[in-house]
Design a protein around this nucleic acid. Structure first.
Length: 418
RNA sequence: GUGAGUGUAGCGCAAUUGGUUAGAGCUUCGGAUUGUGGUUCCGGCGGUUGAGGGUUCAAGUCCCUUCACUCACCCCA
């Protein structure tokens, strides 16, 4: 019978890699706490409507990338393609932002998009996500950007580029949108096929097109900053001032357009040159219209998502430290089958006392057990002599020294010498 | 969805222009005067060469199909 393999775009994070992920999550978690963000656990699937209304009907995500199916009750369900819509839904549903209250929450977990896999892109991928809800001030934008930068700083990532832009709000974006339509309409012959459809559905996205010809046309396109309303202009200036106040360097990219409809005002990405073509390790921005789009009234928000898979990739590439690899400290070896019971008892005793211990459970020879013990710091050896005297021989495997001590002193001895 | 590249042992690889029984290394397992690991030495396990078909006296090698993986486009984390 043919073996079954993991579906395309999914993969197994095995022990050799998972401990590195744990380090990243732990670092992110500590940083989140330092910034006043609390962790939440949310559903991995939601009603399809949440994303079609929240993320936007004409976005790539909703149009062609969602894992959508009908459940047994006939409801249309979608595996979350991104985190923000779900977070906002939860905030609304649980009244986290009523009466002027705000919420700073983070979570991490798998997201799902049906795309062709490539370097740094999977169909099931993992994001660390932080959202600051209920605060309209630019200071919140700065805080969120600073948070993402701080996580990367602690992880030791190098050569990152912070790119920011403003995409306007519901007042000024339609104005800019119309300007773009007017402009690009007079250059239709120079646009690629997909951009021609974007012209009608989402003209801002033409700015982001990497097609050479479209790029040339976009170079001379109307500047978004000329169209920003005074509020958006001021907000963006405050964000920039805040970033500079904290000493961050960033670049301005007027062509940075997020693929999700809910973004307003601030949009930003953090890029790494050590990834392949998919070079964003984090991206986010402000989304003051998301709440109303999913029926939750006016709740401003700003946040970011960070690609865990990609962060791990960059760290590996740059030789960053993942901390100490977890290892067994003590191996308890049985010399002769008669001592296997005593070995099991001692091993359990060590484990109850938080000493990372291992013993053989498969009937290996003493020699084999000692071979495995070689990767540990200490070996506890129990044979006929030890049983007779109620002792254990403890061998320091780094210098080869060995002592024979009463079994009931093993825990203290090891705790003192580990 | 489109394009390009790659599929040989658990892993990374080798195999003259198509030519005997597809090979080492690492890993793993076992052993080297019966109570002591890392180094060393010896040995064992391990493959329908991704799958299917075709050309040929002969295919890991050439052709077709298919599957998988990788990278890129699109877009994003």
């Amino acid at each position: 019978m043919a073996a079954i393999n993991a579906p395309r775009g999914t993969r197994d994070i095995l022990p050799s890699e998972s401990w590195k992920w744990s380090h990243i999550i732990k670092t992110a978690s500590e940083t989140m706490m330092d910034f006043g963000f609390s962790e939440v656990h949310l559903p991995i699937f939601e009603h399809t409507e949440l994303f079609s209304r929240g993320v936007g009907e004409t976005t790539d995500i909703v149009e062609k990338e969602m894992y959508t199916f009908n459940d047994r009750g006939g409801r249309s369900i979608t595996l979350r393609p991104e985190a923000t819509a779900g977070v906002m839904r939860a905030a609304i549903e649980n009244n986290l932002c009523v009466q002027g209250a705000s919420a700073k929450i983070w979570n991490w977990g798998p997201m799902f998009r049906h795309e062709r896999p490539q370097k740094g892109r999977y169909r099931q991928f993992y994001q660390i996500d932080a959202e600051c809800l209920g605060i309209a001030s630019a200071m919140a934008d700065v805080e969120v950007i600073a948070l993402s930068i701080e996580i990367f700083r602690r992880l030791g990532l190098k050569n990152l580029e912070v790119v920011i832009n403003s995409v306007g709000c519901e007042k000024c974006r339609p104005v800019y949108r119309q300007k773009l339509i007017d402009y690009f309409s007079s250059h239709k012959s120079e646009l690629c096929e997909t951009c021609l459809t974007r012209l009608e559905r989402n003209p801002l996205r033409i700015l982001d097109c990497k097609n050479e010809s479209c790029g040339r046309v976009a170079d001379n396109a109307p500047d978004i900053f000329d169209s920003l309303c005074s509020e958006c202009r001021e907000h963006f200036a405050e964000v920039r001032a805040g970033l500079e106040r904290l000493g961050f360097t960033y670049t301005l990219n007027k062509r940075l357009v997020r693929g999700l409809d809910y973004y307003t005002k601030t949009a930003y990405e953090i890029l790494s040159g050590d990834l392949g073509s998919q070079n964003a390790v984090a991206g986010g921005g402000r989304y003051d219209n998301l709440a109303s789009a999913i029926g939750g009234g006016k709740i401003p928000g700003v946040g970011f998502a960070c690609g865990l898979d990609r962060v791990a990739l960059v760290m590996e590439q740059q030789g960053c430290s993942f901390g100490k690899m977890p290892n067994t400290d003590v191996y308890v070896a049985s010399l002769g089958d008669d001592s296997r019971g005593a070995v099991q008892i001692l091993t359990y005793e060590l484990r109850k006392n938080n000493i990372r211990s291992e013993c053989d459970t498969s009937g290996k020879s003493f020699k084999s057990q000692m071979k495995i013990a070689g990767t540990c710091k200490f070996a506890c050896i129990i044979g006929a002599d030890e049983i007779a005297n109620n002792t254990v021989s403890v061998k320091n495997l780094s210098d080869g020294s060995q002592v024979n001590i009463p079994v009931n002193e093993a825990v203290n001895y090891l705790k003192e010498n580990l």
